[in-house]
Design a protein around this nucleic acid. Structure first.
Length: 440
DNA sequence: AGAAACTAAGAGCAT
DNA sequence: ATGCTCTTAGTTTC
């Protein structure tokens, strides 16, 4: 009995050293105010100018009527180490839409059509049927506009547009300071369609937050619109619909849940009722980054969104504010960690809003990677979380942006590119070889 | 549309 | 280390 409790979910066994490590690391992860000031000056200038450019641009009226939705960890206030990644969603005004879920993707990817024919500006972004909104066309135009903006207004100011990746919804801008090579920032700009007319069927049940945030807040959140970003599922040989597909995004809901995270309204209102929920998420993000750095190949499909999702599941189950008091930091973090570990062991991490979609299912997350992750997490726990110790401040500057919406590491695509080259070379060599044989 | 009010969190200082 | 205030950035509201 005793030993069984120890091997499952027993959190009483946190050693003083582990407790100290968790607290120390939690402090180190803070963003320095000076870094923030420097970053914000540059990034806000960029975003303000980009908005002005888009609102006044003459050649693409559809992108004139936009509004900004800041998202991602910086704007959720859970960014760790350095303020070097910013996520901006640009909401595009669209007429009434009809969504149809793509089979095989359990409610995450959709084909989006206009509910009736239109003569508004969106007509240039439709497929031949004059109804279906083309994700690739919208993304390509976003890219073209951002590139035009940079070359017209930001020449030589340190901003470079990153090569577009087929699986990412974002146009990514990178900032490199001239003097300091190591100073890198990135801004992801993601076009998004707003769908105010209720959540799609797959998410209709709503997130499991009634006990945690209360029925009233739940109703409020569920009455908000959902967004769709131009992202196609992973994999080769996609069907035509999948190539033009949109992925549902709950970034704005996630941001709100992180902001109003308490069971009681008074949570984090003053000193006396501070809680450690956000800190737990930061620590989990740190651990994930550390592991990805240590095993980049094996954990290629792992991203911070998996951690965030697990975190939400724990919050919705462990609702009492008192359980999350700062004094309970290490206990709380280990609860989150153990849940994440169990998800990996079971190969099951349901999307928080689209519950039938398992984020730990192949092909997006290969079986091998799940098994590897489960083993690595167990090992981490047994060794006292060495991955938290890894000094990552410099590594955080390596421009491997994990996008919360895209949920994939941007580096993946470039690796695939090189694989293609290898394969091509191999084929050529074999052909030449065969040719030589025949000559003989 | 822009200013004011409000919130969160880092910094600094005292204990 | 912990408690508290001040400052700044982001958001909301009018």
């Amino acid at each position: 009995m005793e030993s069984q409790r120890r091997s499952f979910g027993d959190d009483t066994s946190i050693s003083p050293e582990l407790d100290r490590l968790i607290r120390q690391r939690g402090r180190d992860l803070r963003l320095r105010k000076l870094d923030q000031q420097n970053a914000v000056k540059i990034v806000n200038h960029l975003i303000d100018s980009l908005l002005e450019f888009l609102k006044n641009n003459d050649d693409q009226p559809f992108f004139r009527d936009i509004s900004v939705l800041t998202s991602g960890s910086y704007y959720e206030m859970v960014k760790i180490n350095k303020p070097n990644e910013f996520d901006i969603m640009l909401k595009l005004k669209v007429p009434r839409l009809v969504l149809s879920e793509l089979d095989e993707y359990q409610g995450l990817f959709y084909k989006i059509m206009l509910s009736k024919a239109t003569r508004t500006e969106i007509q240039h972004f439709l497929l031949e049927d004059d109804r279906t909104i083309s994700a690739t066309k919208i993304k390509a135009e976003m890219y073209r506009l951002v590139r035009k903006f940079i070359s017209n207004h930001f020449k030589g100011e340190g901003w470079v547009i990153r090569r577009s990746l087929v699986n990412s919804p974002a146009v990514t801008l990178e900032f490199k300071a001239k003097e300091k090579d190591d100073y890198v920032m990135s801004v992801d700009i993601v076009p998004a369609l707003e769908v105010p007319q209720g959540w799609p069927q797959a998410a209709r049940a709503g997130p499991n937050i009634k006990n945690w945030l209360g029925k009233k807040n739940c109703r409020q959140l569920v009455s908000k619109p959902v967004y769709f970003v131009p992202k196609r599922p992973k994999g080769r040989n996609l069907k035509d619909d999948a190539k033009e597909s949109w992925r549902i995004s709950f970034s704005h809901i996630e941001k709100e849940m992180i902001q109003y995270h308490g069971n009681k309204k008074t949570c984090c209102e003053s000193y006396s009722n501070k809680c450690c929920r956000k800190l737990c998420l930061r620590l989990l993000k740190c651990l994930i980054e550390g592991l990805k750095q240590q095993y980049p190949k094996e954990l290629e499909s792992l991203c911070s969104y998996h951690g965030k999702t697990a975190f939400f599941h724990v919050l919705s189950d462990r609702v009492q504010d008192s359980l999350w008091s700062p004094g309970q930091l290490s206990v709380s973090f280990m609860k989150v960690f153990r849940y994440f570990e169990r998800c990996a062991m079971n190969g099951s991490l349901p999307h928080f809003f689209v519950r039938e979609h398992n984020l730990f299912s192949p092909p997006a997350f290969p079986k091998r990677a799940i098994v590897f992750l489960a083993n690595v997490l167990t090992e981490q726990r047994e060794l006292g979380l060495p991955a938290l110790k890894a000094p990552s401040p410099t590594s955080a500057l390596v421009p491997a942006v994990i996008h919360p919406i895209s949920g994939t590491d941007s580096i993946v695509a470039s690796e695939r590119f090189f694989k293609h080259i290898y394969v091509c070379l191999l084929v050529i060599i074999v052909c030449v070889g065969i040719g030589c044989l025949f000559k003989k």
